[in-house]
């Protein structure tokens, strides 16, 4: 469904992503794990068209994404819940969610999807008219995911959804991610919390300083001694 081939991304003179290749197949939950600064967020943003790769190709269902502006990439069915949530703090929860639906052709089913998101995150329904900035960190994360879902994505990109959340909330978020996967959404999940990510994922890639250094079945990676030592705390 999504395939990256030899993608390199630079910031000025710094090479943040140094020629990575990977793929995500229809219906899969794939995770990219790795430490801070490994290039994970850059990778996701490059897929979404925020950054341009210097070399390499990114294709989504055979279509090349590298020349498309970000809004057209969203229109193709790729939406993202960004790192740091990036909620529009001055806008209401409703406006935030509606912005997620900016590119939808099928506007008639929007109310239906709003209800679906409120069933996933009831708290958003309670706060529909509150401004995004007044939500707690966990609520903002839910809003970020909900907002990305409002695009009815075929591929959902989740960037560090558990960052900065209390353990209980982390479990909530991952439970929702599993549930989303069951509904058939293809998901690419970037996480520092490798333990959690490997629990829910089908397959995984490990990134380090701009390279993919390991890949494989999530379950087998979780038991890989090196991974255990480096990312799972022994």
């Amino acid at each position: 469904m999504l395939a990256l081939h030899d993608v390199r991304v630079f910031y000025g003179a710094i090479e943040a992503v140094k020629g990575i290749s990977f793929e995500v197949r229809q219906g899969e939950l794939v995770t990219i794990v790795g430490a801070n600064g490994a290039g994970k967020t850059t990778t996701l943003r490059t897929i979404s068209g925020i950054y341009r790769p210097a070399t390499g190709s990114i294709t989504f269902e055979g279509q090349d994404l590298t020349a498309l502006p970000s809004h057209e990439i969203v229109a193709l069915g790729i939406s993202q819940s960004p790192e740091g949530r990036l909620i529009f703090g001055s806008l209401s929860v409703r406006d935030n969610l509606m912005l997620g639906a900016t590119r939808r052709a099928d506007r008639a089913t929007i109310p239906e999807d709003l209800d679906y998101i409120f069933s996933l995150f009831p708290v958003l329904g309670e706060r529909i008219n509150q401004s995004g900035g007044t939500l707690s960190g966990g609520e903002q994360q839910m809003l970020a995911i909900g907002r990305a879902l409002m695009a009815r994505p075929r591929l959902l990109l989740l960037d560090e959804p558990s960052l900065g959340l209390a353990p209980m909330l982390v479990n909530r978020i991952f439970a929702v991610i599993s549930r989303l996967k069951e509904t058939g959404v293809t998901i690419l999940l970037v996480e520092q919390n490798a333990r959690k990510a490997l629990e829910v994922a089908d397959r995984a890639y490990v990134m380090e300083t701009g390279h993919i250094i390991l890949e494989g079945d999530a379950r087998s990676l979780a038991t890989n001694p090196e991974i255990k030592k480096a990312y799972l705390g022994g």
Partner: peptide
């Protein structure tokens, strides 16, 4: 950037 990620 967030706006662009929304497809704006």
């Amino acid at each position: 950037m967030a706006a662009r990620l929304m497809g704006i």
